[in-house]
Design a protein around this nucleic acid. Structure first.
Lengths: 335, 335
DNA sequence: ATGAAAGCGCTAACAA
DNA sequence: TTGTTAGCGCTTTCAT
């Protein structure tokens, strides 16, 4: 607070003009070598650090990248954030993280604050709900949507997951094991991803010649708690012998319900999760799941972030999810 | 980039002075109600957002909080970051996250960048190594050290974990189960936490009347890979029948080694991890571990962050870790 | 109640 | 080669 070292304070200290200091520090050619060395030397001694606010006010790039995620505990988001953070570290960018909790009000606030500090780029998992005016204001910021896509009232690029085939495979795989009553827990139709995953699940049922049972399809706002409570209900009802999850948080919630209700129910219920946190391979002899290529998504995000070009010709990038079958979907009779 | 809305542009639009706009927007009393309403209305229409850089340059608080963590994939750090982020959200603070990878060079760069943008407060897990001049420059920033403590050349507050009792208990617990060859994997003496945890382990051996076997004590830079490779070696050597971990990353690495080397070796090796990610309760029938009260740590950090007071009277806050025994430390004969 | 001036730290564009 | 001026957006101080 007290006494920040500025080019003026250095200039006064050296008895020269602040412009000479400025030029010296930015290696401008028209500065006497002696002068430059002296300035740099003194600046280091005094602990000079360029004031980012002043630079920003002059219209220079802010070096700020915003990242909006529902949370950062889920391993998928954590890994994504980790990769992004490392990339930003490498590029000397400031990564500003905001958690939305999948709440659009939080999202709007976060975007406004990012606008205030003139964030250059924003990577975000859009929350469910209608976009108000929020994004219209971020004219100068380039936005990359992750996983889900929403109309932002202007062109944005998107990094999406194509999980239709994997979800269909999940259903037909379960059917092939002898399951006929398969439950689904996923996001509701407010989300693009919720819609397409449910459709894929229904397609899977159709491919397997199974009837869709409305009471076995559970949708809502995607959260850990939601997955947990629906899974608990499904386990309790005993109407289903298998369940498929359509969401990261939902999957972890449902899995925790399965683990908490004890060994017996876990062994009687086939389970296919969503996302593939490292511990899925270790739990219950291995949890079958729909794996989303996190690292590929993150690397693409970094790539788009790094690309200084304005509007990418191909704004939507899609990566395939894949079904990983492990112990939680073994043939019924074998378990 | 193009045309940011400023108080001047609004003023010109309305044909008044930019000062009137400024006053109106900040609810200064000396503004005609009509004028104020008109200004606010127009500002909303145009999408005015106050320029944070300009405010910062006038010496106003930046609302920026820095968070330095080794990584953000480990559930401990992820939970901590999550809680911090939520608190910052609630207080309209910008949380800027930097990952150090436990490398002091990265740490220094991150601190300098935080200084550039005038971060008000920084919460950091100090990396191993000597602090150079880095922190001296952050005169105006208040620093909170997390988990580990290092001399920063000026007073800082610290949030630490007292795990000595828990680690001693871990050793005596294993000894009571019949183990006499207990391995330890932890950070080396470069870290305050590394030193104290190793000392606690040795104390435990002493309490259990066991000899310290140097070859069973593995220390080094704390990382997932390090934990994994040492654990692999310990499993292969068959000199030990149990192992205790002293570090979050180390524990996860060692556990993955145990899981990967197959069921048999896992059942012959008692294991006590460090930290208690949610999946530890589900893996291998339950992984015994030294639980660190993440939420308490995070809440304390938020509390210190929020406290506007300058120097807290009690700069060091310590929280007790506790031993959680589960399936991986059952009596040898029963397994 | 409103406006004009000054200055926060920095650099592009002139001036010397 | 070095110095002076001006202005980025904003608010405090001093006019009007």
């Amino acid at each position: 607070m007290s006494d920040r070292v500025t080019i003026k304070s250095i200039a006064k200290d050296l008895g020269i003009s602040h412009m000479t200091v400025s030029r010296a520090l930015s290696d401008h050619p028209n500065v006497l070598k002696e002068t430059r060395d002296a300035v740099k030397q003194r600046a280091r001694e005094l602990g000079y650090v360029k004031n980012a606010a002043a630079s920003a006010m002059r219209g220079e790039q802010t070096q700020i990248v915003g990242l909006l995620l529902p949370n950062i505990v889920n391993e998928f988001y954590a890994r994504f954030a980790n990769t992004m953070a490392l990339a930003c570290e490498a590029q000397s960018l400031q990564l500003v993280i905001h958690l939305t909790g999948d709440n659009i009000v939080n999202e709007e606030q976060a975007l406004e604050r990012l606008h205030q500090i003139q964030a250059q780029r924003v990577v975000m998992v859009p929350t469910p709900g209608k976009s108000e005016n929020s994004v219209l204001h971020l004219r100068s910021t380039s936005v990359i949507q992750l996983i889900r896509q929403r109309d932002m009232g202007r062109p944005t690029s998107a990094i999406l997951v194509d999980d239709s085939a994997a979800i269909r495979s999940a259903v037909t795989h379960l059917a092939a094991q002898g399951h006929s009553r398969i439950a689904y827990i996923g996001a509701d139709s407010k989300l693009s991803s919720g819609r397409s995953r449910l459709a894929a699940f229904q397609d899977g049922l159709m491919l397997a010649n199974l009837e869709e049972t409305p009471e076995l399809v559970c949708t809502g706002a995607p959260s850990n708690e939601m997955g947990q409570s629906y899974a608990r209900r499904i386990i309790g009802d005993r109407h289903a012998t298998a369940m498929v999850c359509g969401g990261f948080e939902i999957s972890n919630g449902a899995l925790s319900a399965l683990m908490d209700t004890g060994r017996q129910s876990a062994e009687n219920m086939s389970f296919i999760g969503y996302g593939d946190p490292s511990f899925y391979a270790w739990v219950g002899g291995g949890v079958s799941t729909i794996r989303v290529p996190v690292e590929s998504l993150a690397h693409k995000a970094v790539e788009l972030l790094t690309a200084r070009g304005e509007t990418p010709s191909e704004p939507v990038h899609s990566f395939d999810a894949v079904l990983i079958t492990r112990n939680t979907t073994q043939v019924l009779s074998e378990r």
